[in-house]
Structure formats: C-alpha cells, structure tokens
Write a protein that binds this DNA or RNA. Structure first.
Length: 478
DNA sequence: ATGTTC
C-alpha cells in the first residue's frame, strides 16, 4: 500500500484523514511491514465504509485486514441508530458468526502424538467436512425455529454438548433478539442437514499443542499449560448464513435509494437500523448467530465422542467460543465523549475483545478478560489472546481474527498443489485430512500473512495481549 | 464463506 496519503499516528496505527464524503477518519492497525504488504483496496474499502450514514469515531481495519466484499475482512465499524446509523449485510459477511472455539484436553501433547493417525482418521470419519457435507441431524419445522432461537442451548437440550459449555460462549450460547420468522424457507431448507458440519474454505478442526505461554497468570486462569493438547474448531453458519446474506444484500441494494442512502459501492448495501428492513435483517442475522453457535456446539460434541473412544482421558472442557462475523448492539463511549452510546458494531473478520471487569464475561474470566481466539492458517500457529480494558478511540474493544490472506485463492491455486502441501506438512509432523486437494492448495500456508507478526502488532497496538501460541498436530480441513 | 451463476 502507498503510505503517502496516510498519517502514521503510532508505531502500529495509520490514520486516513476524512476526504471525499468520509464522515470519520479511517484507522488501520499495522506496522510498516504489514502496511506495505496490505492491498490498496483495503484502504479504499476502509474509506468507503467511513462514508456510510451514522458511522461514529472511525472506520477501522485490524492488522490481518484484506480485501473483502464491500467491507474489508478485518474491518470494524460502529453506527449510531439515533444518528441515522445503518446495518449492512456486507458488513457482517456471508458466513454469519463464523468463529472459533478452543477446548482443553488436559493431556500432554505426546499423548496425542502416540495415537496421532488413529485420532486424525477418527475425527475425519466422524466430523462431516467439505462443501455440501451433511450432518447427523435433520432439523426441520419447529425444531429449525427452536435451533435459530436457542443456539448452543438448543444443541445442549438435544443432547449435543454440555450445559457447562454455555458460560464459555459469547452471549452465553444464545443470541437474544433472533427472529426465525425473518429467515426465508430457502435458508432453512439449505441448513436442514448441515447442522454439525464443518464446511469448506478456511474452516477446520485442529488438534494443537500449547507451544509457548506468553502471559502465565492469564494462561493459568484460562487453563492453558505449556505442552498440553487442545482442540480448536473454526466454522460458521453454513448455507443458512450464506442464504440470509445473499437475500438481504439484494434487498438492501434495491431499497437503499428509498432510504436516502447513496452507496459508494453497491457491495456496501445497507439499511437504517431503525427501518423495517434493518430490524428484519438484525432478526435474521441473530438467528444466523444462533445457527453458528449450535453448529460449533454439535461439532464440539462429536469431537468429544471421538476422543472418548481414542483418548478417553481427554476432558475437552470449553475454554471459549468467539464469533468473527457479527453486528452486535453494544454500549461504548465514542472517542472524546464521556457517556457510552448505544451502537451497532460490525465486526467482519474481527473478534470482540472485552477486557477484565466487563460484565458480559462469566466468572472466572471476568477477572482477566475475554479469551480472543486467533485461528491461524493451515499448518501454522494459532494464538490465544486476552482482551484489554479500553475506553473510546480504540476499535470498540475489538481485535484481529486470524492471519489474514496475503494471496487470493486463485493465485494460491496457480502456485501450489494440494498433495505437495499435505506431504510438506506431514514432514513437519502435521497430519492433514481433507476431501479436497484443491481446497488445501487454496489454503496453503504461504497464501496467508505471518500470524506471529499480526498478533505482535495487535498487542503493540493495545488491541489484545498474547497469552499462548498454539501449533498444529492434526488438521481436519474443509 | 457458498448446493463455487436463481
């Protein structure tokens, strides 16, 4: 990216002054290396978001930001409904509530190494993965609506997962305000056999080891011990979220003019939060969040079943479950103001990162802050961070979500072959199981930014602090 | 991300 038009405000933050109709500045969190590699289109998208009605404080991009549909992936933007603020389907993304959960085995990683291939095969056999994969459940009619209302709570009621998990999920496993009636029959039909499936793309289940502890006191509260094995699941709301996104995006494009909104890019289609369409989207999007909660809860249960057979001493207690693609109603002080405002915070490829003392956090996490789970690319490290207490002017208590793509899927396909990637990783002791060698090539580690650099910048920028670095042993890949 | 172009 050409940094000539950017003001460097700290070692890890760049400001784009408002111009050409931007209501607020853009802020990009990056060091000189990450900003140099970031696509100019990220800045353009940050600026476009800053032109939307009712945006407050700034249009943000996290250190892992890359080009996305309308909003950048790694984008954070908050809107005030009292100031004509909008909600945008493209600002949430197609994979509503795509997110990550990490579960603690309580066992040293060498116990996994001893049974690695057996465990990898069993996980791959039991956990549905890949494009169009179908699951163990068939959810229709009133059950579908109950799932969309109940989220992970519904899954637990169905016998998938444990009630103790619920405290360790954002919104305690159930997003309030979901309106299943606003979700189309087509979206529900697409989902009826997909609950409890991993999906494709960058989604995965990994068995990882805690390679390094960076913040011992917090790691202890989180239950992370150096050398232990953990299980991390990354997936979202599958066909249902995608269908909701597709339908509302179209409707928001068609009605933007009626709402008096001039779109800088049709991919930024949006509706006033206080409009009928805005409220309807929020009801459907929240149902999509519950779908993702239920999905990850069911997959977590399937993983526990596999471990119970292959490695029965493993506990698989849930550390936490975070969403990366949401629009949430939250109270935040805007920079320069003392009182908090009621805002609708879009996080697209970004993680909520609440600090110690936040009442949204359950005990004992409230004492230290929210676990911020950063999913790495296939074969590379992942991180557990912890949210930091912050006031206004700091991305509405958000952090990055992953490594972030450096190359497009298309470019990755030209450069790598899936089989070679699998062999290379096997040489390094990492077992990959995937139905799609094309998918593996698209997800080649070299197609992503350096996650160590991304989280270091996130920490230096004050977005979150590093607690533990995780490295993969087994990856079941979509 | 996605029954990878209703």
């Amino acid at each position: 990216m050409d940094t000539a038009k950017l003001e460097r405000i700290t070692a890890t933050a760049w400001r784009i002054p408002p111009h050409d109709g931007m209501h607020v500045p853009g802020i990009v969190y990056a060091d000189e290396y990450l900003i140099a590699d970031m696509d100019d289109k990220v800045c353009q998208q940050v600026c476009n978001v800053a032109k939307l009605p009712g945006i407050v404080e700034a249009s943000y991009a996290m250190p892992d930001a890359h080009w996305g549909y309308g909003f950048p992936i790694g984008g954070v933007a908050a809107f005030d409904p009292e100031a004509g603020g909008v909600v945008s389907a493209g600002g949430v993304g197609f994979d509503i509530s795509c997110g990550v959960r990490t579960m603690l085995t309580g066992l040293p990683a060498n116990r996994v190494v001893e049974v690695r291939d057996t465990l990898a095969d069993a996980l791959y056999a039991e956990i549905p993965v890949g494009l169009g994969s179908t699951g163990h459940l068939h959810v229709v009619g009133e059950e579908m609506d109950a799932m969309l209302l109940g989220g992970a709570r519904w899954a637990v009621e169905q016998g998938y997962g444990d009630a103790a998990d619920l405290e360790r999920i954002e919104e305690r496993g159930r997003m309030a305000g979901a309106e299943p009636a606003t979700v189309s029959d087509r979206a529900k039909t697409r989902q009826r056999d997909e609950v409890g499936t991993l999906g494709s793309g960058n989604h995965y289940l990994e068995v990882q080891q805690v390679a390094e502890i960076l913040l011992p006191d917090v790691a202890e509260v989180f239950g992370l011990r150096e050398g232990d094995a953990v299980v991390t699941i990354h997936c979202g709301s599958r066909g249902l979220g995608h269908q909701i996104g597709t339908e509302f995006l179209r409707e928001m494009v068609e009605t933007a003019g009626e709402h008096g909104i001039a779109l800088p890019d049709r991919e930024l289609a949006c509706a006033p939060i206080e409009s009928a369409l805005g409220r309807r989207y929020l009801g459907a999007m929240r149902a999509g969040i519950n779908c993702a909660f239920a999905n990850r809860e069911v997959i977590g249960h399937l993983a526990r079943q596999v471990f119970a057979r292959v490695l029965p001493e493993a506990r698989l207690d849930l550390l936490f479950d975070v969403s990366h693609n949401t629009c949430k109603e939250e109270a935040h002080p805007v920079a320069g103001e003392s009182a908090a405002r009621r805002l609708f915070v879009h996080r697209k490829g970004a993680t909520r990162a609440f600090g110690a003392g936040d009442p949204a956090l359950p005990e004992p996490l409230r004492a230290v802050g929210q676990p911020v789970l950063i999913g790495g690319s296939m074969g590379t490290a992942s991180y557990v961070l912890v949210g930091t207490p912050r006031d206004g002017g700091h991305a509405f208590r958000s952090a990055c979500h992953g490594a972030g793509r450096a190359l497009s899927r298309h470019a990755a396909l030209r450069r790598w072959r899936g089989r070679d990637i699998v062999n290379d990783l096997e040489q390094r002791g990492i077992a990959i199981r995937s139905p799609s060698m094309r998918g593996v090539a698209e997800e080649a580690p070299g197609a992503y930014k350096d996650i160590d650099a991304v989280v270091e910048v996130a920490e230096r920028a004050g977005l979150a602090r590093r607690v533990a670095r995780l490295t993969p042993m087994i990856c079941v890949k979509g």
